[in-house]
Simulated assay, not measured.
Amino acid sequence: MSEYTERMDSATEGFVAHRNLLFTVAYEMLGSAADAEDVLQETWLKWVSVDLDAVQDKRAYLVRMVTRQALMRLRTLGRRKESYLGPWLPEPLLTSPDVAEDIELADSVSMAMLLVFETLTPTERAVFVLREVFALGYDEIAEAVDKSQAAVRQIAHRARSHVAARRPRGGVSQAEIRNALEAFQRAAQTGDLQSLLTILAPDVVFLGDGGGAVQAALSPIVGASHVAPLAAGLARYGAGALQLAQINGHPALLLRVDGEIDTVIAVRIDDGLITGLYAVRNPEKLSRVERETTVSR
């Protein structure tokens, strides 16, 4: 076996061993599986040229590489979002049931939390994800984001405070989300607006992401009296083809039309009521819902 082949085998083995982790880091930073995959490809191309004999901790080294690539990609993604038609929502992932057993991981990939991450600066997002989700040391994070450890500690404190003020309240359980979705499903399919109003918070916000490719609300819709008839209409449009699925670590609804996934509906729940209703319809964002994606820490 040639030296080149041995080096490539070693590089491949190290990358594959941590691939699911690397994808999860990139996805949590970007909210886009397609962009996360691009980041992994860019990281792989750089990884194969690294002197692996000088790498003491392959996991930490690869996470730093992915973080740097994701930070560069975030700036490009930010420009795309500025010209995006209508609300931008994260790309939904079909995840395995066991993701829910890791409460912190499930929370960090949830649609509601990814939207909270959107309110952070790119560096705050990277620091929060690496520290709070993946438990990296401040020294490792400092290398990844090219800041001093003192600066990273300040950024981490600021990001934690920001997220704490905006994250879903009350430690919502999987069962609570499932029960709310089942009630929503029954009420929407029967057109029972009164039942819908009992599970929607008065200030509930509906966001629809069609990406300009399919019909969707071009601005947020606020208030239970406005959201309830819209939700009922969405369910009727699907001719009753609503089904529960595990999306981004939590229960969500899939709406099928002619057997094809048309819409993914995720919710945010605060104090037992639905405060956020997120409908992803952009066809480019629905490919990951047909096959399970592995996320890990």
Results as ranks from 00 to 15, higher is better:
R158F: 04
V172F: 07
R167P: 03
A164Y: 03
A144Y: 06
Y138H: 09
S148A: 08
A142F: 06
A150W: 00
V133R: 07
V145C: 02
H157Q: 13
H162T: 12
A151Q: 03
P168K: 10
G171N: 11
E140P: 02
A151I: 00
A156I: 01
P168I: 09
E143G: 14
A142Y: 06
D139G: 13
E140A: 15
R153A: 06
A164V: 11
S161P: 00
V133D: 02
A165Q: 14
A150C: 01
S161D: 11
P168V: 12
S148G: 13
Q154C: 01
S161Y: 05
A164E: 10
A165P: 07
I155Y: 01
A150R: 13
R160D: 02
S161L: 14
R167Q: 15
E143Y: 11
G171F: 05
H162C: 02
R166H: 13
S148R: 10
Y138Q: 07
A144V: 13
D146I: 14
Y138E: 08
P168H: 04
L136A: 03
V152K: 03
D146T: 15
H157K: 15
G170I: 14
E143A: 14
E143H: 15
R167I: 12
H157D: 09
V163Q: 08
R158D: 02
S161V: 14
A159F: 08
R160C: 02
D139W: 03
I155C: 06
Q149C: 01
R169K: 11
R167M: 13
D139V: 12
A150L: 05
G170P: 10
V172L: 08
S148N: 07
S161C: 05
G170K: 14
A159V: 13
D146E: 14
S161N: 12
A135F: 08
S148Y: 03
A159D: 06
A164N: 10
R153Q: 11
E143N: 14
L136P: 06
V163A: 12
R160L: 04
P168N: 04
V172R: 11
R160N: 06
Y138K: 09
E143C: 07
I155V: 15
K147E: 04
E140F: 00
H162D: 04
E143M: 11
A135W: 03
D139M: 05
Q149P: 05
D146H: 11
I141S: 08
A142K: 08
A142E: 03
V145K: 03
D146N: 12
A156D: 05
Y138R: 07
V152W: 00
K147H: 04
A156H: 04
E140V: 14
H162Y: 05
A164M: 11
R166F: 04
R153N: 02
H157T: 15
V133A: 09
R158T: 13
A165H: 06
